[in-house]
């Protein structure tokens, strides 16, 4: 019997992996996927297909919700020969990226592939994203205004 807490952790890890895959540039993800040489035998249950989501913001940043525009999103659902189902969603229209992300989502639910996927795909993607973000942060930080007070007169 799996405890509620364990289920929660599994869910959180899956979600985190999906976030990494969704945010990854298609080229990076496909490059790592091809290099990892994992079985690509999943059958497509849905998609990959592109559609729209309506984005929501909040009045004043934290108030009542409102719709402020739409974005393209691509999604795919696959099923491994073992019966495990994988899902993927990502902004944009990169169908092959999303199909592969769904296969990865399915494979990482199987203990025999979990480590390989973590080491060969997710960890490098996470590292690259962290680097890109850090570069952006440091470049922005260089434009931070340092105020200094000018004191005039002697008293």
């Amino acid at each position: 019997m799996v405890s509620r807490q364990e289920r929660q952790t599994v869910m959180q890890q899956r979600r985190e992996a999906m976030a990494v895959l969704a945010a990854a540039p298609g080229q990076d993800l496909l490059g790592l996927w091809n290099a990892a040489a994992l079985p690509d035998e999943a059958a497509l249950l849905r998609g990959p297909e592109t559609g729209l989501v309506t984005l929501r913001g909040r009045m004043g940043g934290g108030g009542a919700a409102f719709n402020f525009g739409e974005a393209t999103v691509t999604r795919a659902t696959v099923k491994l020969p073992s019966g495990v189902v994988g899902h993927a969603y990502a902004l944009g229209r990169e169908k092959e990226k999303v199909r592969v992300a769904a296969v990865i989502d399915a494979l990482r639910q199987q203990p025999e592939f979990e480590t390989a996927i973590e080491e060969k795909i997710l960890a490098p993607l996470r590292r690259r994203q962290a680097e890109t973000d850090e570069t952006r942060r440091t470049e922005t930080a260089a434009t931070r205004v340092d105020f200094f007070t000018m004191v005039r007169g002697e008293d």
Partner: peptide, 23 residues
């Protein structure tokens, strides 16, 4: 173009306080 695409739904609200700020 957007009228040619199917709709998948509404997102959760974005959190601008958690933004990766560029300005």
């Amino acid at each position: 173009y957007r009228t040619t695409l199917p709709r998948f739904g509404y997102t959760r609200t974005i959190d601008t306080a958690a933004m990766l700020v560029e300005r």
